[in-house]
Design a protein around this nucleic acid. Sequence first.
DNA 1: CATTGTGAACCGTTTCACAGCC
DNA 2: GGCTGTGAAACGGTTCACAATG
Lengths: 263, 263
Amino acid sequence: MATGRTHRPATRSRGIPEATVARLPLYLRALTALSERSVPTVSSEELATAAGVNSAKLRKDFSYLGSYGTRGVGYDVEYLVYQISRELGLTQDWPVVIVGIGNLGAALANYGGFASRGFRVAALIDADPAMAGKPVAGMPVQHTDELEKIISDNGVSIGVIATPAGAAQQVCERLVAAGVTSILNFAPTVLSVPEGVDVRKVDLSIELQILAFHEQRKAGEDAAAEAALPAVARDDAAIEAAADNVAASRKGPDGDVPAVMPA
Amino acid sequence: MATGRTHRPATRSRGIPEATVARLPLYLRALTALSERSVPTVSSEELATAAGVNSAKLRKDFSYLGSYGTRGVGYDVEYLVYQISRELGLTQDWPVVIVGIGNLGAALANYGGFASRGFRVAALIDADPAMAGKPVAGMPVQHTDELEKIISDNGVSIGVIATPAGAAQQVCERLVAAGVTSILNFAPTVLSVPEGVDVRKVDLSIELQILAFHEQRKAGEDAAAEAALPAVARDDAAIEAAADNVAASRKGPDGDVPAVMPA
DNA sequence: CATTGTGAACCGTTTCACAGCC
DNA sequence: GGCTGTGAAACGGTTCACAATG
């Protein structure tokens, strides 16, 4: 999961818990799907399943927004879509700039999920003069020299950094100086920003490392089980020794082979 | 923040807290940088700053791994790198497959951060027959038909899904059936997986929505401050009204303009 | 009477503050 | 003296369980 936030103290009352905010987009996506299928109402149970959470959590989350359900019936899909959209600020237009148009930046520029929810890619910016003017996702790449002007002309408050780690802090500082107050950072660096600027980080290799950690544990468990050891206390040596056996016993059933679409 | 996990109950003792696990890669990155600069030891304070956390948290985190520091001195950089790498399972080789070689899949394939930490891209897989054989990141794309064989031949236990949402669940099922037990999902869908399979999700549009939420709040605050209203209780109507003024007053100082590298 | 909304208990995580140790 | 390691307190989030209610 992406994470990392800079925050002012939770002064104001009736603040929605951060954990709840992070789930609202999930609910919104599930609700949008229901809306497209013209489903009029959902129960907390159904919606929770669709969003991949449990229903108690969902109900508590919604209780922070206000009470938009009907006891004995459920929630009105359209109404909830509206309320959550409004709460997330998606009823307004958010111009976004992407800085660093390499593989990842280009992928982001082409990503449909942005436009579909109020985000508009206002500009693509790269430091390579050779990139300037080149169309990516139907939009000409602009040179870094224009950064400040672009931000200011478009009233951009959200910036996406997809540069190499070495350039990220500099880019960040220029974005912030130009008026950006929210940054989504894909570069594998800790950005330091002034008070009042939010940073969220998405780090691919960190996610993999977390998976590797659990994977390693599973390997240890499997091996312990196979060796018919009592599954009680953990023993580091045993786990380490067992780790070498990972992936030894894998099966590859090719029963039904459904088609997969290209990304 | 990327997130989302499927988990067996925390049966085993001496489990490292999930929150700590999620920070270990951060420490590792900071330590690696120190190591490259041949710094022999660090204090919890220095390392914490470099990793973007506070020192109490860092010390508590390390206390779960064992006590690898020296009071009055700090931590031995090389030794810590080794201990954390081992704990994360990065001393072994993790073959990974990427399914869905669109813009994002290609970006992932080219991403250097994988190889640098024990992850090896074993194969790139796509359902489009036209992609088959095409080289991406110096490696030929293989057709989905080969999925099971690839997983099995390479002992792959970690899969990355970068397909469109519609294909993700099917791909996921095939990966799992073929022996994959950890999945990093970039498709904007909730994947359902059997017990024992870990899923982590990275969702770009969710991250932006979370930023938009905070951005909206800031706009409300700013407006309230400008209007010289008492900064006490929140008033929804006022915030909504003020939201339209976002980005009205932006300055674009072009003082020093450092160069930015392409991504 | 099915389903929401929510106090209260619970649990994991963070922070504090200081004892322990080099 | 300086810095780690860690109990204990504080906090935020989740889950439970049931009263409220359309």
